[in-house]
Design a binder for these strands. Structure first.
Lengths: 205, 205
DNA sequence: CCTGTACCTGAACACCTGTTCTGTGTCAAG
DNA sequence: CTTGACACAGAACAGGTGTTCAGGTACAGG
């Protein structure tokens, strides 16, 4: 494939991600050599090439001949992914559901190491102030405390509900009384999995 | 040598302010020589002394021997102010109500200079998914379309309500049926003013 | 007068940093 | 096989950068 401007490579995204994380954590972007060390590379030239590529793709700005003269463009990959409806059977990280990226903010979403954002589709959680079209911030983890609001995968569908497991049955409880709880029993043959817990909500008007 | 304890001098605050502004505008703190140039000073030593004093006063952190190794106190890069309960009679920008700062994100809060965040105190807007403890993002403007959710100042109290003005009466309508509308008529002597319109909501769990 | 503080000049040093150059290896497409 | 993109090593250089030393000026208080 002859591509000069079609998209960044995985390795380039690694670089971009590190730059953004470093900028958030330390208050300033890293130097070329700090990037090289983080990537396990010995040459500064390799880093310079990646930076060049990222600039060409418009994902990064550069102030030439200035130390730490890097700046991640807003909405660039490396931030927190915003996912839309999760299609049947596909993992929640599927590229097709990607709506954009959110800049990590320590106050709202934290470092963003294992965090993603899900665009809520239904009205089953209006009792908790989660309306259709809202975005929920999710920390990816396989377990959750009872009662917490989680993003769960039932068979092949992702859903936002309260997590209420019991010895013989797992209940996914909506906070809108119009929706009955989803109950899954071991003998059902249905698979239930916690993708993560909801740590925040936001909405645009 | 210098001695701490009595507080920073005006000149030192000038330095701190410049560092904050530079970090926000350029994404990284300035170098010693950039500070010197901005202050109209020819010697880097003068700047080093001021930085020393600011570090002693706890207003600045330093990563020794690292370029641009300065960091202002936590939560202060001149982002979007987060305001708490607005006390009687005081303007909404009063320093006493400041809870912190939020990093600007184009997706959520935009880059506007005329934006602030208000920590919601009551449960009068639960019908719109705005719960107690939520944060509303407000774009400061003196007028609003009918029906929009606004932050309004009634006499000396700030409140979040639907804006429904009529010819002879201004109604501030809650979305929780337990709260009756606030009605203000021209002859009342009460003053009503729109501080801004709510453009977003977010919540931490 | 003497002392301490705040603020600055000027210069120098050692290291950091961005940039550039040449060369190597891998892998997929034509 | 040839071509081109991608990724990296190693080295070098010019200038940036934090730090430190020596000294100067002004002001206020005992």
């Amino acid at each position: 494939m002859a591509r000069g401007g079609s998209g960044p490579t995985p390795r380039q995204l690694e670089v971009l991600q590190f730059i953004q994380r470093h900028a958030r954590r330390n208050g300033a972007p890293p130097t070329v050599r700090e990037i090289a060390k983080a990537l396990g590379v010995a040459s500064t030239n390799a880093v310079a090439c990646h930076i060049d590529a990222l600039v060409r793709h418009g994902l990064l700005e550069r102030h030439p001949h200035s130390s730490r003269g890097l700046r991640v463009g807003s909405g660039s990959p490396g931030g927190i992914p915003i996912l839309g409806r999760v299609a049947a059977g596909r993992p929640i990280t599927a590229q097709e559901d990607l709506e954009g990226y959110l800049a990590p903010d320590p106050f709202l979403v934290g470092d963003g190491d294992d965090t993603f954002v899900l665009h809520v589709q239904g009205d089953s959680m209006t009792g908790d102030g989660i309306l259709p079209g809202d975005y929920v911030i999710v920390r990816r983890q396989p377990v959750a405390e009872r009662g917490r609001i989680v993003v769960a995968m039932v068979e092949d569908e992702a859903t936002v509900k309260h997590w209420q497991p019991d010895a013989d049955v797992v209940r996914l409880v909506a906070s809108n009384p119009a929706y009955p709880p989803i109950e899954v029993r071991p003998g059902d043959g249905r698979r239930v999995e916690v993708l993560g817990v909801v740590t925040g909500v936001f909405r645009r008007m």
